[in-house]
Amino acid sequence: MTRTAANSASVAAKPRLTTSAMIASIASEGQRTKPAPFGHALIALARSRPDIVGMTADLGKYTDLHVFAREFPDRYYQMGMAEQLLMGAAAGMAHEGFTPFATTYAVFASRRAYDFIHQTIAEENLDVKIACALPGLTSGYGPSHQAAEDLALFRAMPNLTVIDPCDAHEIEQVVPAIAAHRGPVYMRLLRGQVPLVLDEYGYRFELGKAKVLRDGAEVLVISSGIMTMRALEVAQALEADKVGVAVLHVPTIKPLDAETILQEASRSGRMVVVAENHTVIGGLGEAVAGLLLRSGVTPKFRHIGLPDEFLAAGALPTLHDRYGISTEVMSTRIKGWL
């Protein structure tokens, strides 16, 4: 498999932004990207699925639902800046046989509208697909827009499937897959110019499946979302130091692919590092740790994630360095743990 020169270049010379803008690109300089993969995938799906409707709470433009709105204006519901209403109304739509894709920011779905998702959607196992932008630390705007705990909250909700896709290639496949799945889904959303990485690995998304993207003898990184992109860059960087890093991508946070995770973590001699764009409390790291311990699989285990604190405002690359989820800091820490 080949990696692009852009990926290497991004590790070496990442430009530093200086503002705490709400919307910041997670793409490295020169990285291949695709525009609005969620919106375009939803359009493609909706052509053959008349039951699909789009609903948002004043964030159509910022969740890429605006492209769907342009294509299907009569299937687009602007619900206003009212996330509780958005979720209840999406439940009502699902009651009537439609499959709503409801979008907002991850902070608002998880923290403001939780009870509405819990009671009106999940408890009745309704076909509502919730797609939320700015997951984890993908905004430098401060805690109001940093959804560091969304996975912990949504993992704890019965009936809910939880997806953390890595890139544009994956998002395009996640959209039809979750629409085909019966039941509610929470999907972390990357929007705007979204990095394109996994196509180079011949990757196919399957709901509920973890996939080995590359093998390595010394370290197994288990990751989801944008951290898989980082993990692949780390693996490439450590290759130069003769350190073999395997990457197991786990886009479905719930239900967890226990079989694949146990199989890979059981291979002797490898340190397991879970890397997540999420607080270290209650996300993929603790899910994997709990699985391993319950199964009697106890490799050397390390955890890369966001600290249990209100994160700072600032430029995203600065914050990713500070909180240890940038490629450079991850590489250094993993080498130090060996």
Binding site: Y77, A89, G97
Partner: peptide, 9 residues
């Protein structure tokens, strides 16, 4: 809130 969605549906 559910009623609004049902009525739209």
């Amino acid at each position: 809130t559910i009623a609004v969605g049902m009525c739209l549906g």
